[in-house]
Amino acid sequence: MSGAVLVTDARKTFVASRRLFGGGTPVHAVDGVSFSIAPGRVLGIAGESGSGKSTLANLLVGLELPSGGEIAIGGRPLGRKPNADFRRSVQMVFQDPFGSINPRFTVGRTVEEPLLIHGLGSEAERHARAIAALEEAELRPGAAFMERFPHELSGGQRQRVAIARAIVLRPRLLVADEPVSMLDVSVRAGILRLLNRLVHESEMAMVFITHDLSIVASVCDELAVMYRGRFVEHGPVRAVLQKPRHPYTRALIAAVPVPDPTVPPTPLPAKLMSGGAPVAGGCRFAPRCGSAIAACETVDPVLEEAQPGHRVACIRHREIAQ
């Protein structure tokens, strides 16, 4: 199997208990996710809060170790513990531009830090590579930013510094967890375009996590919709947005506000808001699903190919597509 990223049945279970006796109920934050990403491609992952997006991101970058399944980046498996090789091949960009760079470091120090950790290059080489990374992140001239401190920078500029830090090691995979959701609308497009360009001009793959479906089209090649720890739909981004097949994807898309007051909002199924806990062995979305039938309570649908490259986990996806 080729690919920059290969994830097979990844799982992460948290046991949410800090008590000494008696285990709490386990939370299956990531509950069997498989996908691969080719170099130079972007996979978007969308879903509501708590669906497991960040947990999956943490697994990919080795911040958390999987409870099950396999993750390999650029052919290097993440074994019991991520080694230096694995560390060099993944990097991450975070949501909060204020917390994600060390307020006590200069921009130059921040960008050089990954090189220092891996003991790469001489001081002059590290300096030069940091400047190059800043310029790639469109902070020009890079040298002018090296001595500045984070508090002198705008949110958008900080996010660019974080991106420069992430690409300075030339990783195989870049994971961006909601990289623009805390930025002003007027600077978002610039960051999205930058990420898009960086990936498509290199051999790096990207996982782009967001809860805002309206921006995925401008960065992603593929889109996966996550619900309660699983992918419920995964396919080419346009196909998923324009012909969503899973009822949850449809609801997510319908709920996005449209910046056009003349268009009345699409009504959502009332059941969507109320829904209780799913029945074991049934579809996890059934309690909130407007299309659910009796069979949905007894069959746990797996991802199946509805169109080439477009997978859906819903037993009614064919009827729904009509």
Binding site: V61, G62, L63, P82, A84, R87, R88, V90, Q91, M92, F94, Q95, D96, G99, S100, I101, N102, F105, T110, E113, P114, I117, H118, A162, R165, A166, L169
Partner: peptide, 17 residues
């Protein structure tokens, strides 16, 4: 819990560092 600490961990910095 801040991003810069996570970033250092992802890049492979030791706990002492």
């Amino acid at each position: 819990e801040r991003g810069f600490v996570k970033a250092a961990r992802i890049a492979g910095a030791s706990d002492m560092r």
